[in-house]
Design a binder for these strands. Structure first.
Length: 839
DNA sequence: GACCTGCTGCGGTGTG
């Protein structure tokens, strides 16, 4: 197959503006020297008709103005007429953004047309950054357009005169909806919209999205099932994706993810362009790359910078401003710059290591050429040989327009519980009315009355087990059956806990002199002793002491040190990208190596084929190796590391049931390894009559998965988040945060109490469901098993680790699974499962 | 032949 390198340019013809019959909006575009695209016109015309919708177009294609004019025309159809536009009283348009940092930028963008066409309107923003005096002023009178976050919107809804405040609202625009829709923040937004729609049934709602596979569902989640129009730009933004090929592919690393071998090539690439973003997958990787780039090019001091989520706000803002001004030649960053601020000067995007998913690659590519008509360019920098295949696959997927779906959370009760208290504060509610309203939110469309009753009971009485504690009787009905919050302390505590983002406690890191550098997790700091060195914020630091939740450091004079390891997410290779990889491998089995990436990796794949076989979408490869360590079994299902964790545990559990055994497990995104001491009988494991069918059976999947992993521990960890969101655990006052240990202790206390005395607690059930769905990707595991049963099986014995097996052997993660303990676990977990099933 | 994996996002009080 010939590898196409760019997305097709479509036929979304821009139309000339400025003709005699043109409208004020068209004249405004013409005055800027901008063309109008059909999707923009479609959008505002739909808005003029009062229709809600979702506008889907690439990053940097000009969506903002399309919906903004739509909202303005909807509110003031005679826009730009001198006779119109008397001062508005109160809020007309609400603009929701997922990031504070976007608020100011957005306000600037929206202001320009307003000054020309509707000068009587005002714009303001309200986020956590908004000053106290500005907040107070806004509460006296809101601007006609308010830019805010989902959290700040909920806070507004928690005020007792909220209904009056939103009484004139005409339109809501939710920016970057694709970022919100898959998370609990999106659900929180859905609930807020349900509330506002009830006050203003004619309310127009528009979402803006990019890089997303499930458009219909995205629209449904925002507007309600089957409602609203879907406007898609026919022009796909031109995106060029290519790869930096290692100079000596034959000597390129088989394993590893840091990729510093590619440093000279990356430096040369940075050199050739005015401004480059270097994306990495982890914060520690960003630190190391920054440090090494600087060591290689000392003349770049002050011209290159570092940006990730643990660095201090001020540092990050300085870097962002530098990008905007075009002052910085390169910034090494993590997902912290995925979204957000429009850095028009950025010419090039480099992605070190696997992009993990097509959507993420597109999102990052879109940071360059960020203006209508300009080309976005991303260059993949592989960190090991097999990532060359991934690079080829990513290009294929981009060219084919395959983008991942984002699943919408299904009825999370912790978010609902929080919402109930918010609404009880925001004027109060009657049970039946609010139930009906909540069910108009997509995620709760199937909420059952008994679940509703449980949630209501939980906030009214603390559920079954907390009735004795007044602080958990958070809402109380008055004589008319209106539920309100009875106590100012509860109200305060609730407002301070609004939101669904739960992060681990971390410590401030600052110089003895006082300048703040950023935050690092307690766990890392706890292991340091005075004098230890570590790399952070692009500098080698020496740890001095901890005082009041702050770690004090000084610049280290020389030497090397540890790099902090933050406990981050473990984003697996997406299904879309994994399948594209299997397709590339399929081509390779037919000696079809097109494109520089596949050519570079060809010797390695040939070796894999010679020693074993290439796994493809039609062939599952299993290798057996006898080494000094013991007996290894390598499987290559290509289902992403989370699924492989579950799958490896499941297979070893099923093998151990046939014949007692203990296995060590290693996983990566491509496959997994089981290592045992006892000899392996391949004929017994894969009998000719069955070829693995029983091993990959989906029967008793749930039971086997729960039995094979320590699900209780996973569930308990998950419950911490739920306890915070549902308001069980208070995070503490700002500036005096509780340590992780305190929070953990109280969350696990609730977990134990509920398990013993309130087994029907639906938050426990939710924790278990979230573990299965999100941490083990049970659905994908199920699909994988089905796929595996459909693949032909290639089992072979090898004498040394193959190119695919080698990275698994060096994978440091080892999970011991002993048959002895397994018996106890099985009994315990099955008991719990039966209890759960009986409910 | 040899590896330095683990992201992001927001919000908030009271007292002097």
């Amino acid at each position: 197959m010939l590898r196409a390198r760019t997305e097709d340019a479509g036929d979304d013809v821009p139309r000339a503006a400025g003709t005699s019959r043109s409208t004020p909006v068209e004249r405004w575009f013409a005055a800027q020297g901008w063309k109008i695209f059909a999707f923009q016109r479609d959008t505002w015309q739909a808005a003029v008709r009062g229709e809600s919708g979702l506008l889907h177009a690439s990053t940097g294609s000009g969506k903002t103005y399309a919906v903004w004019f739509g909202a303005l025309l909807h509110a003031q159809p005679s826009l730009g007429q001198p006779t119109q536009g008397a001062t508005t009283n109160g809020l007309r348009v609400l603009w929701i953004t997922p990031m504070r940092a976007l608020a100011a930028d957005t306000a600037r963008a929206l202001e320009a047309p307003l000054n020309a066409l509707l000068p009587t309107w005002t714009i303001g923003s309200r986020t956590g950054d908004t000053s106290g005096s500005e907040r107070a002023r806004q509460l006296r009178s809101l601007p006609s357009t308010l830019i805010t976050t989902p959290e700040s919107l909920s806070l507004l809804l928690s005020q007792d005169d909220a209904a009056a405040r939103f009484g004139k609202l005409d339109a809501i625009i939710v920016d970057e909806w694709h970022e919100l829709m898959g998370s609990k923040r999106g659900v929180q937004t859905q609930l807020a919209l349900a509330r506002l729609r009830r006050w203003r049934p004619e309310l127009m709602v528009w979402g803006l999205s990019a890089t997303l596979g499930n458009l219909q569902q995205s629209r449904d989640a925002l507007l309600g099932a089957g409602r609203g129009v879907l406007v898609q730009s026919k022009t796909r933004k031109k995106i060029v994706v290519d790869t930096l090929i290692p100079a000596h592919p034959s000597r390129f690393a088989w394993a590893g993810h840091l990729g510093l071998q590619m440093l000279p090539a990356v430096a040369a690439e940075i050199d050739r362009h005015a401004s480059t973003l270097v994306f990495t997958n982890t914060r520690s990787q960003a630190e190391l790359w920054y440090q090494n780039l600087l060591a290689a090019r000392p003349d770049w001091a002050g011209l290159i910078a570092l940006h990730h989520g643990s660095l201090d706000r001020e540092v990050r803002e300085w870097v962002e401003q530098g990008l905007r001004d075009g002052r910085l030649k390169a910034v090494v960053c993590t997902s912290s710059l995925d979204l957000g601020v429009d850095f028009t000067p950025v010419e090039r995007v480099l992605q070190i290591g696997s992009p993990r998913g097509v959507a993420r690659l597109l999102q990052r590519a879109g940071r360059s050429g960020h203006a209508p008509g300009r080309v976005s360019r991303a260059t993949l920098v592989p960190t090991n040989s097999l990532e060359l295949v991934e690079a080829a696959a990513a290009q294929d997927a981009v060219a084919a327009g395959q983008v991942e779906q984002r699943p919408v959370p299904e009825a999370p009760l912790d978010v609902l519980v929080q919402h109930l208290v918010t609404i009880a504060l925001g004027g109060g509610f009657r049970s039946q009315e609010l139930f009906d309203e909540v069910r108009t939110a997509y995620s709760y469309r199937a909420l059952r009355p008994d679940q509703w009753q449980w949630a209501l009971d939980f906030v009214a009485r603390g559920g079954q087990s907390l009735t004795a504690y007044p602080e958990y009787q958070r809402v109380v009905p008055d004589a008319d059956g209106v539920y309100r919050v009875p106590d100012a302390a509860i109200a305060r505590r609730h407002r301070m806990s609004i939101g669904t983002i739960v992060s681990d406690a971390s410590m401030q890191v600052q110089y003895l002199r006082g300048a703040r550098i950023g935050t690092i997790e307690e766990g890392f700091i706890a292991r340091l002793r005075a004098g230890d060195r570590f790399l952070f914020g692009g500098r080698m630091l020496e740890f001095v002491r901890v005082h009041e939740m702050t770690a004090y450091v000084r610049r280290a004079t020389s030497g090397s040190g540890a790099v902090p390891r933050w406990q981050g997410g473990r984003m697996p290779l997406s299904s879309t990208l994994a399948h594209a990889v299997l397709d590339c491998l399929e081509e390779a089995t037919h000696d079809d190596y097109s494109g520089p990436e596949m050519q570079a990796v060809q010797p390695l794949l040939a070796l894999q084929q010679q020693w074993s076989a290439l796994p493809t979408a039609r062939k599952l490869v299993v290798e057996h190796l006898h080494s000094r360590e013991g007996h290894h079994l390598f499987f290559y299902p290509f289902a992403g590391r989370l699924v492989h964790v579950g799958l490896a545990a499941l297979i070893s559990y099923r093998l151990a049931q046939r014949r007692p055994a203990t296995f060590s497990i290693a996983v990566n995104d491509y496959g997994f390894e089981l290592l045992g001491a006892a000899p392996v009988d391949l004929a017994e494991i894969f009998p000719a009559s069955d070829m693995g069918g029983a091993l990959f059976s989906s029967a008793h999947l749930l039971e086997d998965v729960i039995a094979s992993l320590n699900a209780t521990e996973l569930t308990q960890r998950r419950f911490r988040e739920i306890a915070r969101i549902s308001g069980l655990v208070f995070q503490g006052f700002p500036g005096q945060p509780k340590s992780t240990r305190q929070l953990q202790a109280s969350a696990s206390l609730f977990f134990e109490v509920f398990r013993k005395h309130d087994a029907g607690n639906l938050l426990l059930t939710q924790a278990q469901t979230e573990v299965l769905e999100q941490e083990l990707e049970l659905q994908r595991l199920r699909e994988t098993l089905e796929e595996l049963r459909g693949r032909s099986l290639h089992v072979c014995s090898i004498t040394r680790a193959t190119p695919f097996g080698f990275p698994l052997m060096v994978e440091r993660f080892r999970e011991k699974l002993s048959t002895e303990k397994l018996g106890d676990r099985v009994a315990r977990m099955l008991q719990e499962l039966e209890k759960a099933a009986a409910r």
